Computed example of a mutant assay.
Amino acid sequence: MNIFLETERLILRQFTEDDADNLFELDSDPEVVRLTTDAGQPPEYKIIQTEILPTYFAHYEKYDGYGCWAAIEKLSKAFIGWFSFEPIVHSSYFDPALANANDIQLGYRLRKAAWGKGYATEGSKALIFKGFSELETQDVLAVALAENLASIRVMEKVGLKLKKRFIYDENSQEVVLYTLKKDDFKRENYVTTLMPAE
């Protein structure tokens, strides 16, 4: 298992080809994708195998420390979703008028069984800490549908501030953009979240 980082309760590791079933199951839950741009689009297993996972693998090769990571609950050893922390240029939301191509976008998607346990906040804080402390991250961004109040609360808990609201052209829905600059990063608010990987 190629571990990227650990928190008190989570392991974030690289995806493997064996995770196709995990991703398919995650995206097959209509409640999980209800407030995402994937809503109403059932996942295709072949797309996961031939496009999504190969994209993750390519980013591991291209970037040192950025990518999309499988989230494993330490206690149960279960796959509970994913966290992404990678250049926003790869996002369907990317617009040069809103962000620089090398700004880092934070994102996550968790199984319903993992909701309400603080995992989104825990994993996000650890990634932000690692980005600003160990990588060369200068700006962290996160986007969510304006109606996704749970994700917005996580953004605010991890220190991001509202920068802009805009309409996403592909689905005509209102989106919020939150940001945190390295100059505004307060290390003491994050340092306890990250554990050294063994």
Rank of each mutant, 00 (worst) to 15 (best):
I52E: 12
K74Q: 11
F57N: 00
P96V: 07
L135Q: 09
P87L: 01
D64F: 05
K77L: 13
K163T: 02
I104R: 07
Q173A: 09
K46A: 14
K161Y: 06
K182R: 15
A71R: 02
L180Q: 06
A144K: 03
K130D: 03
D183F: 05
S124R: 03
E134R: 06
Y45G: 05
H90G: 10
S92R: 05
F129S: 02
A113M: 11
L110T: 09
T55D: 08
I52L: 14
K130V: 02
L180R: 02
K112E: 08
E136Q: 15
L75C: 05
I152M: 02
L106P: 06
R153E: 03
L177Y: 01
L75S: 15
D183E: 13
E122Y: 07
F57A: 09
K74M: 09
T50A: 11
P87D: 02
L75R: 15
Y178G: 04
G107D: 05
D64P: 02
T137H: 09
A144W: 06
L149E: 08
P43C: 06
D103N: 12
L106F: 08
D64C: 12
H90R: 09
I52R: 08
I52F: 11
A142D: 07
T36L: 04
Y108R: 04
A114T: 04
T137I: 14
V176G: 00
G81N: 13
T137P: 05
Y56T: 06
Q173D: 04
K164Y: 10
K157C: 05
R109N: 00
D169Y: 03
L162T: 04
Q173F: 03
T121Y: 03
I128C: 04
K164F: 10
T50E: 12
V143W: 00
Y60H: 12
G40W: 15
